[in-house]
Design a protein around this nucleic acid. Structure first.
Lengths: 219, 219
DNA sequence: TCCTGTTTTATTGCATACAATTCTTGCCCA
DNA sequence: TGGGCAAGAATTGTATGCAATAAAACAGGA
């Protein structure tokens, strides 16, 4: 019975710990899309009562990470290809908006953050380290979100990345994919740094379209 | 003690009814930003126990409609002018994306829905009926969201409208404001119907900028 | 064998009780 | 008079029990 990792985290409520644990499990793919969330099972698994579990499930449901199917209960959201395309389209639009805003507001600090994230991406890609690349890629995109200077845009974009995480993760099957993705970043960076918002828009559009096509292949 | 409107709605859980009631109250401005949500108070107000109230509050908090301040408890979100500007910027971007996508995919049915919503807006504006206008305006924007054919974009945009509802509602102080807003819609519609996505983008950009400037005036 | 109606079981939703935490009030002392 | 401290009150977080309901299992007839 894997009790929660940090039982000493007395500051955080049990409900939040369960929520975080579930998000992690879903993002990591341990809980596959379509899996049913059993209140009593999770409760005893995490050593708490049903109440905080219900609270966590509710919050996840409100975020769209869990959905209620035709059967009773909540399930890890699973999407058809069409739904996936729609979600990616939405994410796509938000990323484009972020890139455009970032290109208009770019300051030196944000710029250096993006660049160093990209450096980490390239290193991980060349080393063929898939896990490191995923993390670096995440930091890269987060840096762009942050560069918008708009935390609401940033959290919106982050939320979509969380939701699509399980589907995007699959696509890096070999080292070439990593390197291709990193190369892709380079041109996107150039476009953003050009401080021409139209160029940045186009750049992100290409990047995201590319990215989505690969997801569809493996889903 | 205003008991819930539809006590017979046995199909819907108490938690959902409370949630909906709270959303309505907040959107309508009955619960002003900064108001503290009292679990026990709401519980007896709606004639249920704390459990479903807590569930509703949690869901609202997950949507960002409620936030936890420095004091204990949850509060109706209130924003500084800068935060408001950022939220509107984000909403702005999403609306623009919706308008662009809608203009690319517009079919006759969606088109007629947008047009009839606009007709209702004009009628309400000319009658000087503020409440009717708010509802019609809402339907107008929802019709555009729906016209994207992408439910995720639509729900995203809807969520932002819910969040900004209390702030937008204030801005229609007199009849001229209504008429101005309705006129504003006309040009936006033309832009969307032009099926030129660049034009639709520009149109929505103007509409939203106009809208936001008025919000800032009264906030 | 398959459909349909019924009983059984499992699970959710709600209420309530209790524990733990934080806010507040009032008191004492400087 | 003001600041700190302590006791009390209020409020949140969690556990548990019960009732309602949906799913499943089962039986009986066509």
């Amino acid at each position: 019975m894997p009790v929660l990792d940090k039982p000493m985290d007395t500051k955080v409520s049990a409900a939040r710990r369960v929520e975080q644990a579930l998000v992690d499990a879903i993002s990591a793919g341990e809980l596959e899309p379509g899996t049913r969330m059993d209140e009593v099972g999770l409760a005893e698994q995490y050593g708490v009562s049903r109440t905080p579990v219900r609270e966590a499930l509710n919050r996840l449901a409100a975020q769209g990470i869990l959905v209620s199917g035709e059967k009773r209960g909540l399930f890890v959201a699973e999407y058809s290809k069409e739904e996936l395309a729609q979600i990616f389209e939405a994410m796509h639009e938000i990323e484009i908006a972020c890139a455009r805003i970032a290109s208009q507001r770019l300051n030196l600090f944000a710029r250096s953050e993006i660049e160093s994230a990209q450096t980490a991406c390239v290193e991980a890609a060349e080393a063929g380290d898939r896990v490191a690349y995923l993390r670096a890629n995440e930091a890269f995109h987060q840096a762009i979100y942050k560069a918008t200077g708009n935390p609401y845009m940033a959290s919106l974009a982050s939320e979509f990345r969380r939701r699509t995480g399980p589907f995007r993760a699959k696509r890096f099957s070999n080292g070439d994919d990593l390197i291709a993705s990193a190369k892709n970043h380079e041109s996107l960076i150039e476009d953003i740094f050009s401080e021409n918002s139209a160029t940045a828009t186009t750049g992100m559009r290409n990047h995201m379209a590319e990215s989505f096509l690969q997801v569809l292949k493996v889903s």
